[in-house]
Design a protein around this nucleic acid. Structure first.
Lengths: 94, 94
DNA sequence: TCTATAGTTTGATAACTAACGAACTATGAA
DNA sequence: TTCATAGTTCGTTAGTTATCAAACTATAGA
């Protein structure tokens, strides 16, 4: 039997992926096969930088993305482990 | 390239699964390997019948469940096709 | 027809979410 | 130290969501 904590984790991940901007962020990162900066992704989606930051924070908070600082930039990438555990096969449907 | 309609469908499905009661409804239906009535599921989750009806309507609206009327009862079951298309491998993680 | 049971819809409410600009923090370059 | 760039946090606002009781609809049985 699964614990309530595990289910809360699941529903949090679904909530984070239930926004069209965040879904597209994940697709962009996944399809590009590389890290990208916040502003790089933000430009593609045509939303303000504060909104981009807000969405990236949510993605990170549930472990869907990794962040790596380098100078002024912060590079984001897909956390494949989380997807494998909670949504196996999903990325391939994008 | 995926269409915006497909992405809207994806995010709607995630939104529906981002609630703890609906996630548990899906698990109960999946694990039981049978159809169940609204009140049967509602009793297990200890929420009012109007709330159960509300959640079931959402599950149905995105095609995650099937409904079959028989007399006074409505029987619900998992729609495996939708899960296979949009969330392959997910049900097995429950 | 009347009654009971199963489920839906309505109306209200409290809590939450996405969006923006403005202000702020952090790092690097001149 | 001053300036510029990248990203975060704050405050606000409009829109959405989960919940319940009450009223309603639909079906079956007496």
């Amino acid at each position: 039997m699964k614990t309530i904590e595990e289910d809360n984790k699941r529903t949090e991940i679904f909530k984070v992926l239930s926004d069209i901007n965040r879904l597209q962020m994940i697709r962009i990162l996944y399809k590009s096969h590389r890290e990208m900066t916040c502003s790089e992704v933000g430009e593609k989606l045509n939303i303000s930088k504060s909104t981009v930051s807000y969405h990236f924070k949510l993605l990170r908070s549930v472990g869907l993305t990794n962040t790596r600082r380098e100078g002024q930039n912060k590079y984001l990438s897909i956390n494949l482990v989380t997807f494998k555990i909670y949504l196996p096969g999903f990325l391939e449907t994008l």
